[in-house]
Structure formats: structure tokens, C-alpha cells
Simulated assay, not measured.
Amino acid sequence: MTFRQRPLGSSAVAMTELAFGAAAIGNLYTPVDDAQAEQAVEAAWQEGIRSFDTAPHYGLGLSERRLGEALRGRPRSEYTVSTKVGRILEPAPAATGDDLANGFAVPATHRRRWDFTADGVRRSIEESLNRLDLDRIDIAYLHDPDDHAEQALTEAYPALHRLREEGVLGAIGIGMNQAEVPARFVRETDLDVVLLAGCYSLLTQRGLAELLPQAAERGVGVVIGGVFNSGLLADPKPGATFDYAAAPPEVLNRALELKAVCERHGVPLRAAALRFPFGHPAVASVLVGTRSAAEVHDCAEMLRHPVPAALWAELKERGLLPPEVPTPEESCR
């Protein structure tokens, strides 16, 4: 059963409600072998996932190469691929060791160089097309321009706009772990989509203050990443991580309270975490990083799991969700 597809802004690009995040098959934190990576993508296809996200940053290009290989031979019109610009990969022939300082268990064969110039954007897209073995990219995101917002706005964004007009790209967006800079881009540019990571979940709704309402008003699609907040909402327990660090006790306790309410309604916490973002009308998809076929099948099962309206109501009654936060059954009224 294929997941429902939702359009991104006024573009011709649509995404399945569940998207495959390919950072993990770029050896995020720990190695994944070629066969395991291919099996994860195959499982996504079997589950009806047709949207795949990668970036040059992920494993120094390994994620793009593996994703391209795994998708080769599949009907190109049936899936969407997103990648990112802002980091150029340059060979480092004298380098030794690994790339774990940047989070990836791969040899340090290249170094990353921030580049949000127009030439850098074109070079990045050309190199991504080669690694992916594709002739077009469906979505290109400006990747983490936290310290480069002005250059991304005045140089990188216009370059992506031209590539979209040329048909090299189907849609353009911005992907960040914060909501403020993307909100500015929604106001000042003609974006199709925002990839918002770690800012809209059962535990934190920072994206609701400004970004999500603006996106809904301007018809910009939003893809939500980090719905498990670095794993805490997948399995809350002592030692779990929250936003890439050890979860503070008060945050862990809140996650355990969320889990208890979910269990009373017969719903796994993972299922509620995956379904929650769709309460907001701007949200088109949730993006989950998976490194194995088993993880893919679990995410698909969890997103398909029914979540009763009474669960959201109890979360609000107990103060675990603010009363103004839209929940999925409300978005259908």
C-alpha cells in the first residue's frame, strides 16, 4: 500500500507522507554495509515510500551514491529525490583517519567547504547528479545556512531559482534545525518547501510560533524531520538522547508521561510521534532516518497505526500538549 502523496507548494513535486531519510545509510555514527543499505531502500519501496532524502554531507557522498544505486532501474516518474546544497566536497588525498568528528563512520577522503555562492550551488548540484546517477533532482534544499543566511538568500537561492526554471530541479527549499531563518525565507522568497528538523514534535513545537502559520498562508509545504527528537520519543528511558545530547531529567519525565498516555489508548508512542505533525495543514510529510529494513517496516507500521482523537484530547487535558496546538483529527474538520 503506497502512502498518500501531498503536493509541495505550487510545484509539480509531491511527497509521500512518510519519507526515507538516507543519512543513516551514509554511515551516520556507525557503519552500514552496502547490502544493508540496499535492503533498507528496498523495504521502503515495498512499504509504498516514494520520497527519499539525502545530501553530500551524509558520509562524504556515500549516502548519495548508495541511494542512487538502490534506486537504479526503478521507474523515475514514481519517486522523488531530495538533496542539499551549501557544502562542497573537496578531495583530501593526504588525510588519514575517519570522519566521525562530523558524525559519519567513513574514511576522511574529502573535506567539506561551506559554499553558498551561485557557482558553488551549480557545482554542488552537478556533483550530486553524478553521485546519484540522475538527470534531474526533484527537491534541492539550502542546507543549514545558519551562519550564511545572507549569502544563501542573495546568491544561493537565486541560483536554485534559475535551476528550477531550467528544469534541473523540480522544487527548492531550505532545511534547518531551527525555525527562525526558514521563516524569513518563506517571507522573502518563492520557496516550495521547508525541511524542519527537531522543531515540531510531541515534545517541542517551536515551529508553530511563526514558520508553520506562514507556510500555510503562503502555500509552502513543510517536511518534518526529527519527530523522535534524536530517539527519546522512540524509546524513552534513562540514557536516551534528546536533540543530539543526553535528555535532561525533566524532558525524559515528560516523554515517559507521553508514553503512559499513549499506552492507555493502546497506541505506541512512536505511532503518536509520527502522526502528530499532520495536525498542521502545512505539513506534507515526515522524514525518518532509517538504517535497516526492520526500521523501515516499523516506521511504516507505526504511521499506519490508528491514533484516536481521545488520545490527543487527554494529552491536552494533562498539559502535555498546549491547547492551541492542532492535532490530526482537528485538521480534518
Score class of each variant (00 low, 15 high):
A35T: 14
A70K: 06
Y58W: 07
V85Y: 04
R87T: 10
G48C: 03
W45N: 06
A55S: 15
T83K: 08
S77E: 15
I49R: 04
R50I: 00
L71F: 10
A35S: 13
E42K: 13
R76Y: 08
Q39T: 04
L60S: 05
A43S: 12
I49D: 02
P56A: 09
A44P: 10
R72H: 14
V85I: 13
R72Y: 08
Q39C: 05
K84D: 11
A35D: 14
V81F: 02
R66P: 10
R76N: 09
Y79C: 02
E78Q: 14
A70I: 10
R65G: 02
E38A: 15
A37D: 09
A55M: 12
A35P: 00
G68K: 10
E69C: 10
R87F: 14
Q46R: 14
L67Q: 03
Q36M: 13
A70P: 06
V81N: 07
S77F: 01
L67C: 08
R72F: 08
Q46G: 05
A55L: 11
V85Q: 03
L71V: 06
A40W: 02
V85L: 07
R66K: 09
P56F: 12
E64I: 07
A35H: 12
L67D: 03
R72E: 09
L60C: 05
Y79S: 02
R87H: 13
Q39I: 01
V85S: 01
E78T: 15
G61E: 03
I49T: 02
L71N: 07
L71S: 04
R65E: 14
Y79F: 15
P91I: 06
P91F: 11
W45L: 15
L60M: 14
L60T: 04
D53S: 06
T83F: 08
E69K: 15
E38C: 08
P75W: 07
T83A: 10
K84M: 11
Y79E: 07
G73Y: 12
A37T: 07
Q36H: 06
I88C: 00
V81E: 03
W45R: 13
A70L: 10
F52P: 01
R87A: 11
A40V: 01
